[in-house]
Simulated assay, not measured.
Amino acid sequence: MDWLNDVVAPLNQALFELNGHAVTWAELLGFVSGGLCVWLTMRASVLNFPVGIVNCALFLVLFMSARLWAGAGLQIVFIVLGAIGWWQWRRGQVADVPVRTASPLLLAGCLAAVVVGTAGLTVLLRAADDVSPFWDALTTALALAAQWLLNTRRIATWYFWIAADCIYVPLYASQGLYLTAVIYVLFLGLCLNGLRLWRSSAAGTNATPSTVAA
């Protein structure tokens, strides 16, 4: 796997220090691509998927170096789900489906999956010497539920993203990933605005987010 190490080595190169902790190319580029991805998602643009895949690849490198194993593994899942969502939106399977609410049964299923997923992942992460097993597990479970809801344009996706972001900010700050913590403050603000736009869209007001097929 020497070739893989050669590929990711430049991304782990420190650019500058922030409060005594090095900021790498992976973290800086993750900041830029992540902000762009959430803005595109807020606009219901299909371009959120390819940009999101790039963002996940950068965070995969970053979280592996920080020993946040669930967060790193989550990026692989996001890449797969992002590719599926991109294919669905491009083929029109979802692109022509309006933004809508989730049924109580779907929400209950997502919440149950978060509880079960958090419990199971916490046990695994403790065995893997994760630096913050419970919080890493909880945010991973919340993000997976959010991504599932996003792929089918459910407004509830934003509630799950908001909950995850509220935990991500102190989690990453506690590990010295200050720029990444700032990224998630930005994500939180964009998610709140995305919730407002999607709720307006579902209500049929003039704030309907545009759908861009690229």
Rank of each mutant, 00 (worst) to 15 (best):
V32L: 13
L121P: 02
G176Q: 07
I84V: 13
F63K: 02
L179W: 02
V123M: 11
V94F: 09
V46P: 15
A57T: 06
P50E: 04
A143S: 15
I162Q: 00
V212R: 15
M42W: 03
R100H: 11
A146H: 06
T152V: 15
A128V: 13
R126L: 10
R196S: 10
T118M: 00
S33N: 08
L4D: 07
I155N: 04
F59I: 05
G117S: 02
P170I: 05
A57F: 00
V51Y: 05
A181S: 12
L74H: 04
F63L: 11
C56G: 05
I84M: 10
G117P: 01
L111R: 07
L28T: 03
A112Y: 00
R153M: 11
L171A: 02
G189Q: 03
T152W: 15
A26W: 05
T211F: 13
A102N: 02
L15P: 03
A26Q: 07
F160V: 00
A95M: 13
S200T: 09
L121K: 06
V61M: 05
S132G: 08
L28V: 06
W39V: 15
Q88I: 10
A57L: 08
V114S: 01
S65N: 07
R199Q: 15
L81H: 14
A214D: 15
C191R: 11
V115Y: 13
R43K: 14
L142C: 12
M42Y: 11
T180I: 03
L18P: 05
A163P: 01
Q147W: 05
Y178K: 09
V46L: 14
V7S: 09
G52D: 01
N48S: 15
L106P: 04
G189Y: 11
V38T: 02
A181Y: 01
R90F: 15
G117W: 03
R43F: 09
S132P: 07
S132C: 10
F49P: 04
R91M: 08
W161Y: 10
L60G: 03
L40Y: 09
W69H: 04
A83G: 15
V182I: 14
R154F: 05
L190I: 10
G194K: 00
V123L: 10
A181R: 01
V115C: 15
N19I: 14
V131R: 11
A127W: 14
C191D: 15
T24W: 06
S200H: 14
W148T: 13
G176E: 03
L74S: 01
L179V: 06
T118G: 02
Y168C: 05
G34T: 04
P50N: 03
N48A: 14
G189T: 01
G92Y: 03
L177V: 10
Q147C: 02
W158N: 00
C37Q: 07
A113Y: 09
D6H: 11
L28P: 04
F59A: 12
D2V: 11
L107F: 13
I155M: 08
G194V: 00
V8L: 11
R196K: 04
S33D: 12
R199N: 12
L177G: 07
R43W: 12
L190N: 07
L188M: 10
L107K: 08
M64H: 15
L18K: 04
V182H: 09
Q175V: 08
W69E: 07
V61N: 06
E27I: 02
R91E: 08
A70G: 10
W3C: 13
S33R: 04
I84C: 07
